[in-house]
């Protein structure tokens, strides 16, 4: 029994999970018993009372009060249990503890940006401390999105016109998937992120180390790191196949045709502009939905990216 349930559900990695799972289990078991009860009765009847001859006479049984009351009461009892149980679970999913560590989340087509109290940001990956309530304060820049972490059993829509919040307390260190579960167009199924749960110490260390980028690493490497961390790969491949944006393979120095027909050469400036104000020069045949990275990247990272793209 438990084995089945364990197979059915993702690993429990937040304090809220067990509460949810126990209800999930209860409904499954109760439902299964109910279902089997009904099906077996049907089976018995179908076999026992199958038609013997064309002129069978059947009794007239129009109703039976006791039976009918029972099969009204029992479901009512069951749903009352299920409701109050679900209600309890819902409360501790929605009531955020006061001491929670707050992270601001910005969702945009099609990536996640996480902003920490100390101002540092990460993209498409978020680092959180273990055994400590963490609160996401979420806003969307465009459509509806929805932040979903199966391992934590949390999900909340992200709206453009107001903040929504969700919280969790991770129970063990490691990585978990984060999905966007509100349909948001082309990149919906690409809009993933990783939740890195770190021990208290590692987390502090990471904060101080500021997103693992140290000042004196070779530009190209820094660029590569930025490229993955800031979700460029969500839209750009490096193998020549276009995704949402054009592939960056062999981009540097090539002739780019823009949607206004003009042709430009992809030099440093062009790449820089493409990153900081993408909407000014739209590559022909692609949507103008690359977000601007102005203010999201520091000078060094931009230089890094350019260096990195040169190499492709």
């Amino acid at each position: 029994m438990n084995r089945i349930i364990e197979y059915l559900l993702p690993p429990q990695r937040s304090v809220a999970a067990s509460e949810v799972d126990s209800l999930f289990t209860f409904i499954n078991v109760a439902g299964f018993i109910l279902f089997m009860g009904i099906m077996i009765t049907i089976l018995i009847f179908v076999i026992k009372y199958r038609r013997k001859s064309e002129d069978d006479v059947t009794p007239v049984i129009t109703h039976n009060s006791i039976l009918e009351v029972t099969w009204t009461i029992i479901p009512i009892l069951l749903i009352l249990i299920v409701f109050s149980w679900g209600f309890r679970g819902f409360l501790n999913l929605t009531n955020v503890p006061g001491n929670a560590y707050e992270i601001n989340v910005t969702a945009a087509a099609w990536f996640w940006e996480f902003r920490y109290p100390d101002g540092s940001t990460t993209m498409n990956e978020v680092f959180v401390p273990v055994d400590r309530p963490v609160k996401f304060i979420m806003r969307s820049e465009d459509y509806l999105h929805s932040l979903y972490v199966p391992d934590f059993r949390i999900k909340t829509d992200v709206l453009p016109n107001r903040y929504t919040t969700t919280w969790f307390q991770a129970t063990d260190t490691g990585d978990s998937n984060l999905f966007c579960t509100e349909y948001c167009g082309t990149g919906h199924s690409e809009m993933l992120a990783i939740v890195h749960v770190l021990s208290a110490e590692d987390f502090q260390e990471w904060l101080d180390g500021d997103s693992g980028i140290d000042e004196d690493m070779p530009l190209a490497e820094l660029g590569e790191l930025t490229f993955t961390n800031f979700g460029c790969s969500a839209c750009h491949t490096l193998d020549g196949s276009p995704r949402i944006g054009p592939s960056l393979q062999g981009l540097f120095g090539s002739e780019i045709e823009l949607d206004d027909g003009s042709v430009v050469e992809a030099d440093e400036d062009y790449i820089r502009r493409s990153i900081l104000e993408p909407s000014t020069q739209i590559t022909a045949g692609f949507p103008a939905n690359m977000p601007t990275y102005d203010g999201r990247l520091n000078e060094q990272q931009i230089d890094g990216l350019i260096a990195f793209i040169k190499e492709q």
Binding site: L23, F24, I27, F35, M39, G86, F90, T181
Partner: peptide, 28 residues
């Protein structure tokens, strides 16, 4: 009879997703 089998499953899973805390996990 197939209806009784399939719809009962469909309906009971409806109860499952009607439960608040479970719905948070299963929605969408």
């Amino acid at each position: 009879l197939a209806f009784l089998f399939l719809f009962t499953i469909g309906g009971l899973t409806g109860i499952m997703i009607g439960a608040l805390s479970v719905n948070v996990h299963l929605h969408d």
